Computed example of a mutant assay.
Amino acid sequence: MNKALLTHLGSAIAGALILLCIPGVSKRLFHDKGATPDLPTPPHKSARSSALSPDSLQSSASPKAPEEQPGKDNLEELFDIADIRIPSRPELESYLVANNHPAEGYLAAGMILQDSGLMREALTRDPSNPHILFALASRDDFPSADRIEWARQLQEEQPRNSLASYLLASLTWNDNPRTSTLQSLAQVADPQEFHSFTSESMVALNDLLRATGCNPGGAALYATMAVDMAHLSPLLALSRNLQEHAMQAAPGEAIQARQSNAALGSSLAGEGDLISRLVGLSIQRNAYAELPPEAPLPLAGVEPEALQLSIEQSRNHIRELSKATETLRTSPELVEGYATRALVLGEIEALRWLDSRITPPSE
């Protein structure tokens, strides 16, 4: 297994584990069937005795972030069990030539090799492909002007996809008047229209690996673990900007900033992968930071007290589910079953399935 790849994957997994210690709230997560118990909707009080500060959102029982990253030996062992075979650059180039230079193939090859030139070539071959526009606009190894243009194109191609608006707002935050940006975010479509293309990236990686000789289970596992999540960085930057603006803006703009921040967090918390969900929880925490006692709630009907309870339950639930991955090293069948479900149903559902295979049913 390539040493650079193992380092990359180890860092990604460590980042996910550290995010488990970041508090937040996700109404959608808590009201998913099979998730943690539903919270009763608390009354919307006309006044609150005290606002939540970032520190008050931290649980005194919160575990510390892991001090060590997952060992490369453990990752290598897991990849050996899954029999993952990563194609070389010549093999990838041969595949692209033999298959009439598919745009999605160039994007996937660029992700595997971390080659921005191949990714740009994907856009050259299919200039209006929303998945490719999104992938390139999200990455900071392209010039800012290009990323902004691609985000605008994505917004034109998918006007109801709120992710395009969030991404564009992040990339142009320092260029546009705050009022204009907040008004644009206030007009964002229903959060259920949020589409991050993570599943499309997984499918592209999976298809390319299978076509170049990797077995189905191994290809699915690699696609799940190595999928490009570059969009989370600009979305986190947007959340921090909204949080800072809310703390110093006039009351009307502050309300808009908090509500947009909360909506962004809710959208991410509804994604099917672990890292997006954890980032969404963190962003929802940002929306409640330094909330004045008389200010409207960023999430309608969710009081600070309910938020704090949601933080604890959500983190604990995800942490418990994540423990099930330890069993993947015991069985190639479990690896294939988990990876296939993660590819089709999302990582959270795959973790629930894996947990059900190792947890005896209650009597």
Rank of each mutant, 00 (worst) to 15 (best):
L167A: 04
N206R: 10
E320A: 11
I18C: 12
R357D: 03
A220T: 00
I112M: 05
K3Y: 04
P87A: 11
R210F: 03
S94Q: 13
G117C: 00
G218M: 11
I318L: 15
K3M: 02
L264T: 01
A122V: 00
Y222K: 04
A295G: 04
L113E: 06
L92H: 05
R160Y: 05
L78W: 08
R315E: 14
G213L: 11
D73P: 00
D115Y: 00
N74T: 10
Y338T: 00
L205C: 07
L17A: 12
N161V: 04
F79Q: 02
W353H: 10
P70Y: 03
R285W: 08
T224S: 14
V335Y: 01
E77R: 13
L334C: 02
M111G: 00
Y338A: 00
L92I: 11
V188R: 13
L182Y: 09
L242R: 05
Q248G: 01
A237H: 07
Q187S: 15
D190R: 03
A306W: 10
R85I: 07
A151F: 02
A14K: 11
E294Q: 15
G270V: 04
A186M: 09
H131D: 02
A98T: 09
L113V: 00
S46A: 08
D80I: 04
N100W: 00
Q313M: 12
M1Q: 02
S276P: 14
I275L: 15
E157L: 05
R357A: 09
A109Q: 02
P360M: 09
L238N: 07
T224A: 12
Y106R: 03
E253L: 11
I84V: 13
L167N: 07
A65R: 12
R85D: 12
A204R: 05
P304M: 11
Q69P: 07
Q256A: 15
S310E: 10
G15N: 14
L307W: 15
P304Q: 12
S59C: 12
E349H: 09
S170M: 05
L5H: 06
A226S: 13
I86A: 06
L264I: 01
I311K: 10
L133A: 07
N316Y: 10
P54C: 11
G105Y: 03
D140V: 03
M202G: 06
T212C: 14
L52Y: 09
R152N: 11
Y166V: 07
A145N: 13
V25Y: 15
G110S: 04
Q183Y: 10
H44V: 15
I358S: 09
H44I: 15
L321W: 08
T181F: 05
D146L: 13
P191Q: 02
I311C: 14
N241W: 02
R152C: 08
R48W: 14
Y106D: 03
I132H: 06
R125T: 00
S50E: 14
I275D: 07
L136R: 04
H245D: 05
L354H: 01
E91H: 08
A249L: 05
I112E: 05
F30I: 09
E305P: 03
A186I: 01
G301H: 08
N241D: 07
T359W: 09
G105R: 02
